[in-house]
Design a binder for these strands. Structure first.
Length: 566
RNA sequence: UGGGGGAUCGUCUAGCGGUAGGACGCCGGUCUUUGGAGCCGGCUACCUAGGUUCGAUUCCUAGUCCCCCAGCCA
């Protein structure tokens, strides 16, 4: 029932993989990898990469996808993230089948590869300061200049590199560099740094090392060590590919993986960079990594988004090489599509307006039958209490109804969902503010929902809750995090100024169906006519808290907006 | 003005010499005890200019625009 329609995605990467298998490249094996650095939490952009890498592995017989922590920078990494990343991956529904690795496990092998390079005269120890090295690098249009240390003898390089490892030098005193071409038009090939000295404690290797391999060295060789066949990464690494190939070839690696690049995911009205997400969390502009406004996996999860929806989204956005910004509405579409099928319906009043059914007996309570999910008959029905005093949504009444407004207004009739047709007789107003505080209505006993005499039709059906039985709740509404697309923010502006001040709206005094008192954190519902909501972890039986995952599509809002535009 | 990439509906994305398809969105309609969902229909696209060809989004040439690269980050 909740299994999404089987998809057979196709894209240029899968085409390459298929062609390679057909050609017998790598003996027909397919080994991919997802290589997060444990310095932050996963977000939906990672999910795209995860779905791609695990997806390709799953689609090919014998294919596997490794989880590898790319932990080569001791100053930014934390075991907390190693745990969190695994959790998020499992929650998303992916399994690495025990193939979990750490680049830090390869430090010794990586060191040997470096020795190989030095012995071949393909790497040297440079003693230029970082500033001087930058000066020697040249610019985009001018070639770089060789470092005076570039011609050091192999023996000297070997000796120095061993002493770097032994901890004889302070941070920054020396680096190991590849000896490629300082005049290369590709700046990545101008003798890139392979190892740097960092007297720092690594979360896994402790103080065993004080030199750490750089990405351009560690990544290709880690791939080679693991027998990765297709090393899929994002576009910004495209001009690192010649270096990737150089490292694997010159280090005499036992296996040569191929790097393939694709465009990362961008979404409108939110931020996706690790740096910006970290900034939001650190500056406390959001409540934490799991703030439901964030596109992090933890945020989406807390908001009530399902892994199925995320996967369906990732499979539908496709994989290509052009930069793209996907509209948030597309994500919302897949969230609604999934939630529509699985969410029990329930009635909840966000902004209550009291109504009294004058001709309904005082003290009487009827238990009415309500359908739990029209999309899923097996979800059955439930009883909802009905009584003389009810609450409806403030938005469902207009004293002076505009054109096309079918809901309640003085003299107008409307159906109460699963109950009776009522007619608004009068509205009581606060004499000072002029605000409507209470409605008096009458009901037609002949129109009880489901009864045989019930033949009348009215234009609208609204939801309600019985005053005597409703549970009090807090409801958190989420709106776009940014007031614009991230791409439209000028580079010289402080992007945090573009955060939507209304990104979080907390509503208290909301009234929900009594059965919701027993709802467990994480459980999801559709509040009829409003949207999909889930129980927040902050919630308790005494103080219910719901998060709006996504609203239902609202045809009236659209009409009203169009009317106002006129 | 170096190098590497990329340009197809508003947004993603297919197309691989035979005359543009899908999804979201949008606009209508239908249905409806959720103005939800469903169902039906419609809308809008090949960056430009030349060339090759019976025929070009696909090939060639020349442009234009966008993205990435000058960390001892990844």
């Amino acid at each position: 029932m909740t299994t999404p329609a089987p998809l057979s995605p196709s894209d240029f990467i899968r085409d390459i993989v298929a062609a390679d298998r057909k050609a017998g490249k790598y003996g027909g094996r397919v080994v991919t990898r997802f290589p997060p650095e444990p310095n932050g939490h996963l977000h939906i952009g990672h999910a795209k990469s995860i779905c791609l890498n695990f997806g390709i592995a799953n689609e090919n017989p014998g294919g596997i996808c490794h989880l590898r922590f790319d932990d080569t920078n001791p100053t930014t990494e934390d075991p907390e993230f190693v745990q969190a990343i695994q959790e998020d991956l499992r929650w998303l529904g992916f399994d690495w089948h025990g193939n979990m690795f750490y680049a830090s496990d390869y430090f010794e092998q990586l060191y040997s590869f470096a020795i190989t390079l030095i012995k071949k005269g393909k790497a040297y120890v440079d003693s230029l300061t970082a500033d001087h090295m930058r000066e020697h690098r040249g610019t985009l249009t001018e070639p770089g200049r060789n470092s005076p240390y570039r011609t050091r003898a192999v023996e000297d390089n070997l000796d120095l590199f061993q002493r770097m490892r032994a901890g004889e030098f302070p941070d920054g005193a020396h680096v190991l560099r590849a000896k490629i071409d300082m005049a290369s038009p590709n700046i990545n090939l101008r003798d890139p740094v392979l190892y740097r000295i960092r007297h720092a404690t690594h979360y896994r290797t402790g103080t065993a090392w004080c030199i750490y391999p750089a990405y351009d060295f560690a990544h290709p060789l880690s791939d080679a060590i693991e027998g990765i066949t297709h090393s899929i990464c994002t576009l910004e690494f495209e001009d690192h590919r010649p270096l990737y190939d150089w490292v694997v070839a010159e280090a005499d690696a036992p296996h040569r993986p191929q790097q393939i690049e694709f465009a990362r995911l961008n979404l409108t009205f939110t931020v996706m960079s690790k740096r910006k997400l970290l900034e939001l969390v650190e500056k406390k502009l959001v409540a934490g990594w799991d703030d439901p406004r964030l596109p992090t996996i933890k945020g989406l999860r807390r908001r009530g988004v399902t892994p199925e929806a995320i996967r369906a989204f990732c499979e539908h956005i496709g994989v290509a090489k052009r930069d793209a910004i996907v509209e948030m509405q597309l994500l919302e579409h897949f969230i609604r599509e999934d939630l529509n099928k699985r969410s029990p319906r329930v009635m909840a009043i966000l902004k209550p307006l009291k109504i009294v059914i004058d001709n309904y007996p005082e003290g009487k309570v009827e238990e009415l039958d309500a359908v739990n999910n029209p999309e899923d008959p097996s979800a059955g029905t439930r009883k909802v209490p009905f009584s003389r005093t009810l609450y409806i949504e403030q938005d469902d009444f207009r004293e002076d109804p505009p054109k096309q407004f079918y809901r309640l207004a003085p003299g107008r009739e409307v159906r109460l969902r699963y109950a009776y047709i009522i007619k608004c007789v009068s509205a009581t107003k606060d004499p000072d503010s002029g605000r409507v505080t209470e409605l008096h209505c009458t009901y037609d006993p002949e129109t009880k929902s489901g009864s045989s005499q019930d033949r009348r039709k009215v234009k609208a059906t609204i939801h309600w809750v019985a005053a005597s039985h409703a549970a009090d709740a807090e409801v958190r509404l989420y709106n776009p995090l940014l007031i614009t697309d991230p791409a439209k923010i000028p580079a010289d502006h402080d992007w945090t100024l573009y955060i939507n001040p209304q990104s979080l709206e907390r509503l208290t005094g909301c009234l929900v169906e009594p059965r919701l008192r027993a709802a467990q954190p994480g459980s999801r519902f559709q509040f009829e006519r409003q949207g999909y909501f889930c129980v927040d972890p902050d919630s308790s039986a005494q103080a219910l808290v719901f998060n709006r995952t996504v609203s239902l599509k609202d045809a009236w809002a659209k009409i009203e907006k169009a009317q106002q535009a006129r």
